[in-house]
């Protein structure tokens, strides 16, 4: 049996450490070692986006990164999206628009949509659709998801203007 590796990292702003098998992906470590099960495994091949997380500010599929590669990295997951109990505008708009049905793809889509709005606060519908093309949703047909993202973008622009 292969020896485990000690990994030190930051998850949602807090120091985190775990012992990991060299085979394990970042997704395995998040879900099985840190018990952060918000990121989901839908395919294990980077095609569905259900495991989307941010690593050092970059949107990645956690199933495509080895857990040992997380050493010294800053990781953000869906569990860190609501701040101090207050939902992010994207989360609020997803609920308002009924932009989820089963909810399995939702964490990954929210993480990816947040990355979009950080990169482009005023996306067109087409830009939103292409940015989220790496996140499969089988329930909604994407209509309400796109509407929720566009409305959240507008809310966030409003907030920025107000502050």
């Amino acid at each position: 049996m292969s020896r485990k590796t000690h990994v030190t990292t930051t998850v949602n702003g807090d120091a985190a450490e775990f012992l990991t098998d060299p085979h394990a992906t970042l997704l395995d470590a998040l879900r099985d070692d840190l018990r952060l099960t918000g990121a989901k495994e839908g395919c294990g091949s980077g095609d569905c986006g259900a495991c989307s997380v941010m690593v050092d500010g970059r949107l990645v599929c956690a199933c495509l990164m080895l857990a040992v590669e997380a050493e010294g990295k800053r990781i953000e997951t869906i569990e860190g999206m609501a701040q101090e109990g207050e939902l992010h505008p994207l989360q609020t708009q997803f609920l308002r628009h009924a932009a989820l049905q089963c909810g399995f793809c939702t964490p990954g889509i929210l993480v990816a949509a947040k990355a979009l709005l950080e990169a482009n606060p005023n996306p067109t519908e087409v830009e939103a659709r292409f940015w989220l093309a790496g996140n499969l949703c089988r329930c909604t047909g994407y209509d309400k998801i796109i509407r929720a993202v566009m409305d959240a973008a507008a809310d966030m622009r409003q907030e920025r203007r107000a502050s």
Binding site: T37, G38, I78, E79, L87, Q91, L100, G103, P107, L110
Partner: peptide, 8 residues
């Protein structure tokens, strides 16, 4: 059940 589903 919405909040649990948007917060993971």
């Amino acid at each position: 059940d919405g909040v649990d589903k948007v917060t993971g």
